[in-house]
Computed example of a mutant assay.
Amino acid sequence: MRAFDQLLDLLMLEHVHDPSRLEAELFASIDPANACVEEICLLADQLSSLLDACREAEADRGASLTRRAAA
């Protein structure tokens, strides 16, 4: 999950304002008008939704196991 979170941060341009990170330099070379930018944004949103669903399912599974152990 940590690797997916890091990938999501990269796709969402989370660190482009941090001059100590490579993302800041690479962001400058992105042309916002390029058609692939919209596709990357859509894929990032989908990945975010999937990660949220995985976390929710994992939390539900943990709660279910806790209830079973208490019974």
Rank of each mutant, 00 (worst) to 15 (best):
G62Q: 14
D5M: 14
D60C: 03
L50V: 06
E23Y: 00
C54G: 10
G62P: 05
A24M: 13
A53M: 06
E25G: 07
A57G: 13
R68P: 00
E25Q: 08
V37T: 04
L42S: 15
S48A: 10
C54L: 14
G62H: 04
P32H: 00
M1D: 03
R61G: 09
D9A: 13
Q46K: 11
S49N: 14
L50I: 14
D45L: 12
L26Y: 01
E14I: 05
E56R: 14
L11E: 02
E38C: 13
H15K: 06
A70S: 15
S48V: 05
G62S: 08
G62F: 03
P19R: 00
S48L: 05
P32M: 07
D45P: 05
L11Q: 02
A70Y: 06
Q46I: 09
A35M: 03
R61L: 15
L65P: 11
D18V: 02
L22C: 11
A57I: 07
E14A: 10
R55G: 09
I30V: 14
L11D: 00
D31I: 01
S49L: 07
F27K: 09
L8T: 00
A35L: 08
C36E: 15
E39R: 10
H15V: 07
M12Q: 10
A24C: 09
E39A: 15
L43Y: 03
N34A: 10
Q6A: 11
L7C: 03
E58D: 13
L7Q: 12
D45C: 10
L11S: 01
I30S: 06
S29D: 13
L7I: 03
A53Y: 01
S49C: 08
Q6L: 15
R21H: 00
A24E: 10
C41A: 12
A44H: 01
L10P: 05
R67M: 04
S20G: 03
F27Y: 01
A53T: 08
L8E: 01
R21F: 00
D31L: 01
H17G: 03
R2N: 13
C54T: 15
L47M: 09
L8N: 02
L47T: 04
Q6C: 11
S49V: 11
C36Y: 08
A69M: 11
M1V: 06
D31G: 02
C36A: 15
D31H: 01
L22S: 08
E14S: 05
S20T: 09
A63E: 11
